[in-house]
């Protein structure tokens, strides 16, 4: 009885989570400028409009650049820092980890304006490079969370065995540590990429003339006649993100399974 009640609630809650998101694809195929029921008919013209929208494509290219740079740099820095805190006994480890995690507890708007002041103080122009720097603040702690969990779960004996068998430190890293870390590195890259790709407020303050995709979308939300195209764009982003996340979960699982096989062998 209680179980059925909970199941009903769970399904209701799931609907609450999904319905708003599903309106985007629904109205993106609706043949009307107005986002209201009843639906007027099926069209793909909003998608065709996107294909012809140069400013949107420029913003998309900017976002891809920013997210790629952020993902690579954050994961690299997250990897070295995660390695340092899990492999060595460091003094002030707690303070260091706290400092690295700090941006997660500072509202994005404060990170945005503080970086704006830095660029102004250094007389640097607003640019995508500044956006990358801002996104790294949030992405480095995310990357470290993923990678520390991975480092802590792995068997140091494998590295020692490699050293005993005569490999030097660098080769041990490439042939033992790195392959074992690969699933963690990939999920860190994906998580930081998506976080950066979706981030609006820091980019809003720092991107200047070269808008990222969320900044571009923000500009479009003021114009009712542009809305269906924005919804079409949202539907595409949703589809691609879900695909990427599904891929990441498959990768993560295959990583775990491979570990189990190795341990079993």
């Amino acid at each position: 009885m209680k179980r059925h009640g909970l199941l009903a609630y769970a399904l209701f809650y799931l609907a609450f989570l999904y319905v708003p998101g599903l309106l985007l694809p629904l109205f993106s195929f609706n043949d009307s400028q107005f986002i209201a029921f009843p639906l007027s008919g099926f069209t793909t013209r909003w998608y065709a409009g996107l294909a012809a929208d140069g400013a949107m494509q420029q913003a998309l290219a900017n976002s891809l650049k920013v997210a790629t740079a952020t993902a690579l740099l954050s994961t690299l820095l997250g990897l070295t820092a995660a390695r340092a805190v899990t492999r060595y006994r460091l003094r002030a480890k707690g303070a260091i980890l706290g400092f690295i995690a700090l941006p997660l507890f500072i509202p994005d708007i404060v990170l945005g304006i503080a970086l704006l002041l830095l660029l102004a103080a250094l007389a640097l122009p607003l640019s995508l490079a500044g956006v990358v720097l801002g996104h790294m603040l949030v992405c480095i702690p995310l990357s470290m969370t993923v990678l520390i969990a991975r480092f802590e779960g792995f068997d140091r004996n494998l590295e020692e065995a490699s050293a005993d068998l005569g490999e030097n430190g660098w080769m041990t890293f490439w042939r033992v540590t790195f392959p074992l870390m690969l699933p963690g590195i990939l999920s860190s890259l994906l998580l930081t990429f998506i976080t950066s790709f979706d981030e609006f407020l820091v980019a809003y303050f720092l991107s200047g003339g070269s808008a990222t995709l969320p900044v571009y979308i923000w500009g479009q939300l003021r114009f009712p006649e542009r809305l269906p195209m924005v919804l079409a764009l949202g539907a595409i982003i949703l589809t691609v993100s879900v695909g990427l996340v599904a891929l990441a979960e498959v990768l993560r699982n295959s990583g775990v399974k491979a570990d189990k096989r190795r341990v079993g062998a």
């Binding site: 820095l77 820092a81 340092a84 690295i100 480095i140």
Partner: peptide, 22 residues
């Protein structure tokens, strides 16, 4: 320990520039 701090340095430098200074 020195190796550990060396590994941490790049991350801390970036955070000093992009977090502490701002």
């Amino acid at each position: 320990r020195t190796a550990g701090y060396a590994l941490l340095t790049p991350t801390l430098v970036v955070l000093a520039l992009a977090l502490a200074a701002p």
